[in-house]
């Protein structure tokens, strides 16, 4: 589904990604871990086309298409979804109106007619229930006055509504208490299928107890320095990141 080869990118003059290689197939969950400033969120930004990131080398193929040539909205329409670390507030725009606009824009891109109101309502109810999202929040302004936990849950609700092929969760667990973490994780687990894939970016192994990954990658200094299975996450939890940093430093010197 997603194939990243030697991806390099910079912000202003700072090289952030220094050659990422990653293969994600349908039905897989990949966790990306790493210390602060290693490039985890930057990877999410580059994949989704945030403006101030400049790709300097490498390629990203998503379902046979060159993702880097597409506008941010077209990447979204192709089925790439980012659950934001810091979801944005948009006053006066109701959550439901926003979602309907988004859904119909995506449908239009695939030459489908707008979804009928009745069907949309049915879908909303179904997904609200699935991800345990408070119906009251659906009619409020988009994220305005939402608590940190409510914002994160809204991201998962949107994910459920838009049904993307590839979902990138950018530190969705940060700022969540244990109950919220459970609800968010349950939602993601219910949405997992053999047709979609997830990239879960996190600092902590904790989230991976709930969303069990097929692969774990450690990102350090703009490169994936180690890959493994879920046991790798446990090892990181135990030993910290220092033992990972050594070879990377050597490699960048060499």
């Amino acid at each position: 589904m997603l194939s990243i080869k030697n991806l390099q990118a910079k912000v202003e003059d700072k090289q952030i990604l220094k050659g990422i290689n990653l293969q994600v197939n349908a039905g897989e969950v990949h966790a990306i871990m790493g210390p602060n400033g290693s490039g985890k969120s930057s990877l999410a930004s580059v994949l989704t086309g945030r403006e101030n990131y400049e790709v300097t080398d490498g390629e990203v193929i998503f379902d046979g298409k060159n993702l880097l040539e597409l506008s941010p909205e077209d990447r979204a329409r192709e089925g790439v979804f980012l659950a934001f670390q810091y979801p944005i507030e948009i006053p006066g725009v109701s959550n439901i109106n926003f979602l309907r606009t988004a859904l119909n824009e995506i449908r239009a891109y695939h030459n489908e007619p707008p979804m009928e109101a009745k069907e949309f309502l049915r879908l909303t109810r179904e997904k609200q229930k699935l991800v345990e999202f408070d119906a009251k929040l659906t009619n409020r302004s988009l994220n305005e006055g939402f608590s940190g936990g409510e914002k994160k849950r809204n991201e998962i609700f949107q994910l459920a509504m838009l049904n993307p092929k590839l979902s990138i969760l950018d530190e969705t667990d940060s700022g969540l208490d244990i109950d919220a973490l459970r609800i968010v994780s349950n939602g993601v687990n219910k949405l997992r299928s053999d047709k979609n894939a997830f990239i879960v970016i996190t600092h902590y192994q904790r989230l991976l107890e709930y969303i069990v990954p097929d692969f774990v990658h450690v990102l350090y200094d703009g490169r994936i320095v180690k890959s493994g299975t879920k046991e790798l996450a446990l090892e990181l939890e135990e030993k910290g990141y220092d033992w990972i940093k050594e070879p990377a430093t050597t490699a960048s010197v060499g």
Binding site: T48, G49, R50, E51, S71, P72, E73, R75, A76, R77, F81, L82, F84, P87, I88, I90, V93, N97, F98, T101, A102, L103, E105, I106, Y109, Q158, L162
Partner: peptide
């Protein structure tokens, strides 16, 4: 960008905001 990332182009995003 948030709205772009949900499939809404910049024109529509500004109008919505």
């Amino acid at each position: 960008f948030y709205l772009n990332q949900r499939g809404i182009d910049t024109e529509k995003a500004v109008a919505l905001i």
